[in-house]
């Protein structure tokens, strides 16, 4: 056996040096001038893959997605404030975007296509622009409702009926935009005092709160619970045409909020991010978004079958600016009233 002493040592140090170099190089590669054809997006929106694929087809920009709830995006953006990891925040509740604007996490961008969107559904300074509306309603599992001998609820106030005890599921306003809009929207419809009194009754019927807004829909679909308070109940029905489901848009006031797009402060690909915002608000982009997630659109495009028309809904003029500003107070009150859900 030939033994290499010093030579082996030198060889080994060379290998180690190369490894270290290889490990360090990609970290420095970020600082190049030319913007690479990639775009990183934090998504809280349905059908993100379709959107990514179509955007890539249209612009040649490769999209990297990470899906999460809007609360989670906000958490991430705060944590990454000094070292932003993403370019665009797409989807979620406008309340979280209002919060992000106040914390200086997103930047203003007036897209030339923003004019297509009603002023009520976008930030006046252009920090965020609504690409579609999320409508809060009830998703009811007919089979389970019948099994349990319950009546179809038609309005918010119906939900305080104790017969729904343990058959009603909702999400947590600490983590879900749907839930926060439900709480604050009810306060707007009924007034603070009556609103909280009603919520006391309603939450007494709910065994626990899901962290994500869409989870109650999936549990109602699976027949785990009879009724879920969910965003866009009609979408569950479109996606599962054979399931025994009914969507209810409460007669005493339908709550909705714009689902915006915004550019993250410190984005590494600001040019691509702008292209994405423009594309989302263009006729073509709106068509793709409708395909990806059949929501009520904020611009004037044709809706798919099964998507409710704005004019059929008793839409409440939900004051998202006011409730966005009061988020902390309302959530604190909620946590104090319902400590069992923490």
């Amino acid at each position: 056996m030939k033994i290499r002493g010093k030579k082996g040592l030198r060889w080994a140090s060379l290998v180690i040096a190369f490894c270290l170099l290889a490990a360090v190089l990609p970290l420095n590669a970020c600082g190049t001038d030319e913007e690479a054809q990639v775009l990183s997006i934090y998504v809280a929106y349905g059908g993100p893959d379709i959107i990514a694929a179509e955007f890539e087809d249209a612009t040649g920009i490769k999209v990297e997605l990470l899906t999460m709830s809007s609360g989670e995006v906000l958490t991430r953006l705060r944590a990454e404030k000094d070292n932003p990891q993403t370019d665009v925040w797409f989807g979620g509740g406008s309340d979280a975007f209002i919060q992000a604007k106040s914390e200086d996490l997103i930047i203003a961008y007036q897209s030339p296509n923003a004019g297509n969107v009603d002023e009520a559904f976008r930030d006046e300074e252009g920090y965020w622009t609504g690409v579609s509306l999320v409508v809060v309603g009830f998703l009811v599992n007919d089979d389970r409702l019948e099994d349990k001998g319950l009546v179809l609820p038609e309005s918010w106030i119906d939900l305080e009926d104790p017969s729904y005890h343990d058959e009603l599921l909702a999400s947590n306003p600490n983590t879900s935009g749907t839930a926060y809009t439900t709480v604050s929207g009810v306060l707007q419809i009924m007034g603070e005092e009556d609103g909280w009194a009603f919520l006391d009754e309603m939450y007494a019927n709910i065994p626990f709160l899901e962290k994500s807004g869409s989870a109650p829909a999936s549990k109602a679909l699976a027949g785990e619970y009879a009724i879920g308070i969910v965003p866009d109940p009609h979408i569950s029905i479109i996606n599962n045409p054979d399931a025994p489901l009914t969507s209810v848009f409460p007669s005493d006031g339908v709550l909705a909020w714009p689902s915006p797009v915004a550019i993250v402060k410190g984005a590494r690909h600001p040019g691509n991010a702008k292209k994405f915002v423009d594309w989302c608000l263009s006729a073509e982009g709106q068509r793709v978004l409708m395909q990806a997630s059949p929501r009520v659109p904020t611009t004037d495009v044709d809706t798919l079958a099964g998507v409710p028309n704005l004019s059929e809904l008793n839409l409440v003029a939900y004051d998202h600016i006011k409730w966005g500003a009061e988020r902390e107070r309302v959530v604190a009150e909620f946590n104090q009233r319902y400590p069992q859900f923490q």
């Binding site: 990183s40 999936s218 699976a222």
Partner: peptide, 22 residues
């Protein structure tokens, strides 16, 4: 510590379960 460009399977699965996409 995952971000969009370095997602892994286990986290995808966990998130899908958490969302309820059975």
């Amino acid at each position: 510590v995952i971000n969009p460009s370095n997602k892994v399977l286990s986290v995808d699965v966990f998130e899908a379960i958490y969302r309820g996409d059975v």
